[in-house]
Write a protein that binds this DNA or RNA. Sequence first.
DNA 1: AAGTAATTTAACCATATGGTCAAATTTACA
DNA 2: TGTAAATTTGACCATATGGTTAAATTACTT
Lengths: 212, 212
Amino acid sequence: MKKDTNETTEDHILNVAQEVFLKKGLDGTRMQEIADKAGINKSLLHYYYRTKQKLFKKVFKVAFKHFFPTIKANITSEKSLFEKIEAFVETYYNLLQKNPYIPAFVIHELNRNSANVAEIFKSIFQENNLELDLMFDELNKQIQVEVDSGKIIPIDAKQLIVNILSLCIFPFVAKPIIKGILLENDESKYKTFIEERKKVVSQFIISAISIR
Amino acid sequence: MKKDTNETTEDHILNVAQEVFLKKGLDGTRMQEIADKAGINKSLLHYYYRTKQKLFKKVFKVAFKHFFPTIKANITSEKSLFEKIEAFVETYYNLLQKNPYIPAFVIHELNRNSANVAEIFKSIFQENNLELDLMFDELNKQIQVEVDSGKIIPIDAKQLIVNILSLCIFPFVAKPIIKGILLENDESKYKTFIEERKKVVSQFIISAISIR
DNA sequence: AAGTAATTTAACCATATGGTCAAATTTACA
DNA sequence: TGTAAATTTGACCATATGGTTAAATTACTT
C-alpha cells in the first residue's frame, strides 16, 4: 500500500498492518512483510508499536471499531421487530461488503486465542460504552412481545439472533467455498450473489418467523 | 495424545497431527509440538511424512473424508424436499458435533491458501467419486419443482443452499462468540444450545420457504 | 544366532523471525 | 543558524523452526 501524502507514518503502518493481519492472521503475518509493504525499515515498526502483539492488538481494535456501535444503533432504535431485522441485515451486509476479511479473521483469532481476543473485545465495549447485556435484554423483550401477541412463532431469542448472524456472516467467511463451488469461481457472480442476499435474507427470516 | 497399543506409529502421528493442526492451523502448528504430543522424536515425523506440507495435506484429507459422502447420501436420497432438509440438518449437526473444529479450520486455510486447499478438495472428490455439479443440478431441479407447484416460495436454489449451510455451520465456527457473549461462557449451555438447533433450524428453514 | 531391513534417535544445519541498539538523518524551534 | 528532539536506518542478536544425516536400536527372516 502506498502512503498518501497527508498520512502520518504511524497511521500508514497501521493501515498496512491491518491489510496483512486481516489476510494472514497473527501467526501467518511477518513483521518484515508489513515493513516491506509499507516501504519502511522493520525497526520502525518496533519504534512505533514495540511488539508484534501490540501492533496486532491495535489493528484488531481499529478494524472492529465500527461493528458494535452499528449493531447498537440498530437494536436500540424505535423500529418494529421486522423493520429492525430488515435494517440490521441491510446495514450488516453493507458493513461486511466494505470489510469482507473481518469475520474470518475474528473467528480464527478467537478460536486460536479466546482469552487474548476476549480482552480486546472488553476494552472495545468499555471505550464505546456498549452494554451488550442490556441490548440483548431489550431485544429479548421485543421478541417476547411479538411472540405473546401471536405475531411471530415462538422462538428463543438467542436462537433467532444466531440465525440472523449466521445468515449475514457465514457467506463472507465461506466466500472461497461459495465462489469456488457454487459460482464457477467468478468474482462478479459472487458480488451479485451477496448483493441479492440483502433482500433474500431478511425476507427469509421474516417469512420464517411470521405467522400468516 | 497417548498411543493405544494396536495403533501404528504412523497412524498415531497422524492423529496427533490432526489434533494440533485443527486447533492451530498450518501456520500456528509447530512440528516440535506434534512430536512432543506424540511422544516421539521430531525426525520421526519427517521419516514418515517428509515435510510439514505433506503431513498437513494428509491430515486435511483424512479430517474431511466423511463430510462429502454424508452430504451426497442425503441429497441423492429419495426423500421429499422437506424431509431432505430435516435429515440434512440433523446429519450435519451430528457430524459437526463430532468434529467441531473442522469448519473454522477449513475456512481459515481456505482463506489463507485457496489454491492449495482447492487442490486437496479436488482429490477428495475424485477419490470418493463425487460429482458436485450433478448433485446440485439434482437438488436444483427438486427445488424448482416445489416452487413451480406452489409448495414453496420462489427462492434461488443457491441462496437456499447457502442459507442452510450458514445455519448449520456458523454456530460452530462462532462458538467462542456465542458461548462467550450469549451463554455466559458456559460449555454445557452451549451444548444444549447446539442440541436444540437440530430442531430449531430445520423448522426455521421449512417455515421460511413453505407456503401455508 | 546372524544378518538385513525397518524404525528411532541425537546432533546438526541453514534460514527465518521478532526484536535491539547505536548511529545517521530529518524535523522542530529558539 | 545551531541544537535538541524526533524519526529512520543498517547491522546485529538470540532464538525458533523445518529439515537432514549418520548412527543406534529394534524387528524380521532364515
